[in-house]
């Protein structure tokens, strides 16, 4: 589980708002407990079943409308790692090539809780 050296294809970037609709195209903004904003591709966010449901639910929840999701219980560090994981998963999950996903021991617990929450 633990490993090092593999490069994460995370390209989490701050700011920029993009109000784009559509199933797989466009970006979504994830906001951490501390208020840091991560704008990632919807495609990547869909790796999480929770996010997938959130973004595709028919009802027109606030998140779908505004294209941003707040996580009051997830810290910036964890959310960043999660975003990295989304991209990592997107890249390697299906393909034959594999690479280790580095997880620092000190965040393991919190990351797992977040993973459970996000159904990832």
């Amino acid at each position: 589980m633990m490993g090092k050296g593999g490069e994460a294809a995370a390209s989490a970037q701050h700011k920029e708002e993009n109000e784009e609709e559509g199933d797989m195209v466009g970006v979504v903004k994830l906001i951490s407990a501390e208020g840091f904003e991560f704008v990632i591709d919807k495609k990547a966010a869909m790796v999480s079943n929770t996010l997938r449901n959130m973004l595709t639910s028919p009802g027109g929840f606030a998140e779908t409308r505004e294209g941003e999701v707040r996580f009051p219980e997830i810290s910036t560090a964890i959310l960043e790692k999660i975003c990295q994981y989304f991209y990592w998963s997107l890249h390697y999950a299906s393909g034959k090539e594999t690479a280790e996903f580095p997880i620092e021991p000190e965040i393991t617990l919190e990351l797992m809780m977040a993973a459970n929450y996000l159904d990832t």
Binding site: N53, M54, G60, A62, E63, T64, R65, F71
Partner: peptide, 10 residues
Amino acid sequence: ASGLSFEELY
């Protein structure tokens, strides 16, 4: 539903 936050409810 538009006023509701999915994340909060979830």
